[in-house]
Design a protein around this nucleic acid. Structure first.
Lengths: 211, 211
DNA sequence: TAGATTGTTAATCGATTAACAATC
DNA sequence: TAGATTGTTAATCGATTAACAATC
């Protein structure tokens, strides 16, 4: 059962996700007990950071042994919603949007792509895996029929804000923004920016600075 | 001319990239002078943060007017390497790898995809845009002929480390890791993790926590 | 038991924000 | 000139790390 009253720091949440992955991998290799030091080594963190992070979830380790792997996995999965199924729509049926809609890793983790939208009439009707690309105008009708948890914004920067507005208006409360644009939303909506272009630019900066 | 002696904090570098984008957009709308407050408003930051960040680059604003837009754009582009052309290879010719290889936004920003690799013999020979997918074994030969600045890791998590090793061995000094795995590299190599899956998981967490 | 590892407090470090003199 | 905005210092805030008593 996750702690409900205190909210977990954003950066800690990110790491909990990494711990969950690492624990699953270690369990696959036969580990039944995992120490904060082992997790730290796998992710290049300090054991202190790991223990601080885990103090935010309601699962206790045991002195001398560490954390019982399957219990911690279950607890982290619950805190992160990784034990649930999520309904996701992708807006933008370009290369990136189609790739994400087909991304096996998402489905494996419970993120189920239910629909793909595009504003381009020429794209409407084309297939992405088992789904038919729909005109963005049909978004509200879809969310009305089946609640959508997350909307992935995979359109060029200039269109990102209007797509965000449309998703929010349709009742979607979680947005993953893959465009480089900053989108403004009301505060009851969660936005995470993927910042792929900025990541490349950060690499370029480091390569420039190195010289 | 960028400051060379003091290194810019990682989070500030990320924001410089956002400022550059915002400035270009504002210039496109006719702005010739831009204040720290305008940039802050566009990105939901404080003007104080913007001024602190800009103090890391060698470009002065002017009291009462703000920053001269074209000059600041040029300066930020230089600091970030956004005024250069970069040679990029993609490893992994799955949905995501192919999408990134074809991503127009990258080319527009000077990140030129020079080759696409995959370990799957069945994929070798297939086309991705104008490029032919090559077997990963040919990586070193390619980097020997033309220096590669950045390698994009677009393979499933279990293969990420060996791909990173291969890229580093081939002399690539910047890695963009799109897999959820943590990769270990020597310290003269820059790695940026895209963390797309973790971003979705963070959204799921917020939706769980909200209830 | 002896020793390893947790959980937690306190210290450190770094990033953000506030404040304001300088100045155009 | 008067007022707006920078550049920078100091204060605050938050995140990471160190340290260690508790304990299995």
């Amino acid at each position: 059962m996750p702690e409900r009253n205190t909210q977990i720091p954003r950066l800690a949440v990110r790491r909990l996700s990494l711990y969950l992955d690492a624990i699953r991998r270690m369990r696959g290799q036969g580990s039944e007990w995992i120490s904060s030091q082992e997790l730290a080594d796998a992710l290049e963190l300090t054991s202190s950071t790991v223990r601080q992070d885990l103090s935010h979830v309601d699962f206790s380790g045991i002195s001398k042994r560490g954390y019982e792997a399957s219990g911690l996995e279950e607890c982290l999965a619950a805190v992160l919603g990784a034990d649930s199924e999520w309904n996701v729509v992708v807006v933008g049926a370009g290369n990136l949007g189609r790739a994400l809609a087909l991304h096996e890793e998402f489905r494996r983790r419970g993120f189920n792509i239910r629909a793909v939208f595009d504003s381009d009439e020429a794209k409407a009707g084309s297939k992405v895996g088992g789904l038919v690309v729909q005109n963005i105008a049909g978004l509200a009708a879809v969310t009305k029929k089946h609640p959508v948890d997350v909307g992935i914004i995979a359109v060029p920067a200039p269109a990102a804000q209007e797509v965000a507005d449309a998703l929010v208006k349709a009742g979607v409360r979680g947005l993953l923004n893959l465009s480089p644009a900053h989108v403004l939303v009301s505060e009851d909506v969660a936005v995470v920016d993927a910042r792929i272009v900025e990541s490349l630019q950060e690499l370029a900066h480091r390569l420039v600075a190195e010289k």
